Computed example of a mutant assay.
Amino acid sequence: MRFVPGGGLTDERRAFREKSRLQAAERLRQGARNTVIAHDLRVSVRLVQRWRKA
């Protein structure tokens, strides 16, 4: 099975995801909690946990 490049997202959604990831990275550096970041960026807590781990 082959997957669509970019996870099947449009360019707009990929840009939004990257912007969110960069904002989360900055907040993680500042020591914010995963739940707060997830709520503010409107993403899942699990996604923020993955970003923190990476």
Rank of each mutant, 00 (worst) to 15 (best):
R42K: 14
D40P: 04
M1T: 07
D40A: 14
E18A: 06
G31Q: 01
A32K: 11
S20Y: 00
Q23H: 09
V43I: 12
A24H: 00
S44D: 13
D40R: 04
A25F: 01
V36K: 15
M1F: 01
R29N: 09
A38Q: 03
T35R: 15
G31T: 03
S44F: 05
N34Y: 14
E18T: 08
A15F: 11
A25I: 06
G8Q: 13
R2P: 04
L47N: 03
V48G: 08
Q30A: 12
Q49L: 02
N34W: 11
R50I: 14
G31L: 06
R27Q: 14
F3T: 04
R50Y: 09
R52Y: 03
R2F: 06
E26D: 11
D11Q: 09
R17D: 12
E18M: 14
S20E: 00
A25M: 13
A32M: 01
D40Y: 00
F3V: 15
R21Q: 12
Q23G: 02
G8I: 05
T10R: 12
R42V: 06
V36E: 13
A24F: 06
V36H: 10
Q23C: 07
Q23A: 12
L41M: 10
G7L: 08
H39K: 15
E12T: 09
W51Q: 00
V45F: 08
V36Y: 11
R29G: 05
L22E: 09
L28S: 08
T10F: 15
R50W: 13
E26N: 08
F3H: 02
G6M: 11
V36L: 14
V4Q: 07
R13F: 08
W51H: 03
R46V: 10
S20F: 03
Q23M: 04
P5H: 09
V4P: 00
H39C: 08
G6C: 12
G6Q: 03
R46A: 15
